[in-house]
Nucleic acid binder design. Sequence first.
DNA 1: TTGCAGTTTTGAACTTGTTCAAAAAAGCTC
DNA 2: GAGCTTTTTTGAACAAGTTCAAAACTGCAA
Lengths: 236, 236
Amino acid sequence: MTTARSGVVKTDKGQQTRAAILEAALEMFRARGYEQTTMRAIADEAGVALGNAYYYFHSKEHLIQAFYGKTHEEHLVASASILEKERDLKARLLGVLRSKFEMLEPYHQFAGKLFKTAADPQSPLNPFSDESNPVRQQSIALFAKVVEGSNAKVPKELLAELPFMLWLYHMGLTLFWIHDASPKRSRTFRLVNRTVDILVRLIGLASNPLMKPLRKSAIRLIEELREDVAAVPGEA
Amino acid sequence: MTTARSGVVKTDKGQQTRAAILEAALEMFRARGYEQTTMRAIADEAGVALGNAYYYFHSKEHLIQAFYGKTHEEHLVASASILEKERDLKARLLGVLRSKFEMLEPYHQFAGKLFKTAADPQSPLNPFSDESNPVRQQSIALFAKVVEGSNAKVPKELLAELPFMLWLYHMGLTLFWIHDASPKRSRTFRLVNRTVDILVRLIGLASNPLMKPLRKSAIRLIEELREDVAAVPGEA
DNA sequence: TTGCAGTTTTGAACTTGTTCAAAAAAGCTC
DNA sequence: GAGCTTTTTTGAACAAGTTCAAAACTGCAA
């Protein structure tokens, strides 16, 4: 049901058509918004028949996945320069998160609609789905880099779970960002500042022997969560 | 735009028609699922014309709000008995959360679709919207009861923010629950157990003088979050 | 070149949410 | 009860996502 059956391109010309449709779609999504852009308009703009768009993209929603990939790439690039320069955990985390929301800013309104479709557990677009697994893994890997490249002292057992934890945390921030109607998304940036501060302090505290039992529980929890996310079945 | 313009019933007969449509809708949603149920079918089932359904309900999505209200009421009732018996904070919180997910279980698949529409920041159904404010307030009030009726020692400043914090936390759990495909939602219940345990321990720790600076920051954060949620503008 | 299998493209048709002008019914005032 | 206003109801029409059978095209083997 959920697996992609269209989008299988055999020809070179096919690739081009596919690309043309995608380009037209993303352009119009950005200019006019997701809902305002009809499949007919996309097909027109791309110079193909309506049905042809459906030959390459299963549905209107599937056009979104390309957007994901694109912004993710951009974010990786933007993060790289920060991660090279900075060794301080707090600064690294702040840098990565800020660059994400800065990069996403032009798509804010659009992203809300995306999120809507992505929130459906049955949708292949939802960030916990099998189909999203590659992007998710890459995203978690980015946070692993944030931690590993830093000079922060992190208990070993926590180190293993921290990247996933940060990824989850960043998903929460994204959720907030989507709902953030403040000018220039100032609320989100404030939230990022505050929570990163607290988070880094918590990580510091985690080394304290007094914290051991609580830390154990927390790590156990995150471990389990991670398994759960991995265990989402592909087909409903 | 977002404000309800339909649904204003003046007549007694109007009330009846409205009720008939709603009943038909909820029944069919449960039986066949949200997407499978067409507005035409609902109108048919209710014995009215298609347009009439739209006279009472702005859109298909608006039919969902009734569902919210209904389940919320049920949850209040289910929680009341627990809150009367129990004084221990952990037990109270566990009881309230468990009863929520138990009550919601028959609607699990349906709830996923609901969530999808609710996740749209522009949707009046989204839990952070103005239109959801009444239910949200009631929901937060429930968590206030959980805390107030307990014999837990909570720093005063934290006490003020705890209900909202717990509400947020419960929203997160709900998000997990929606994505939980495990049999009988066992993963969710496990998560509830684990997180409630940690949460209660954290609350206990919060009294420790060592924790004061961190506590201050955390409370400040929650305060701000609460303002933000309240500040979501009604019109886009 | 011709025939053929696979690939791509087309556009009409279908479904379903939504709108709207007009008809019907109900209330109300005199 | 007649005439008026307001409320309710109707169903046709519209928009946009999606499907599908048929046409067009492509590459290749004989």
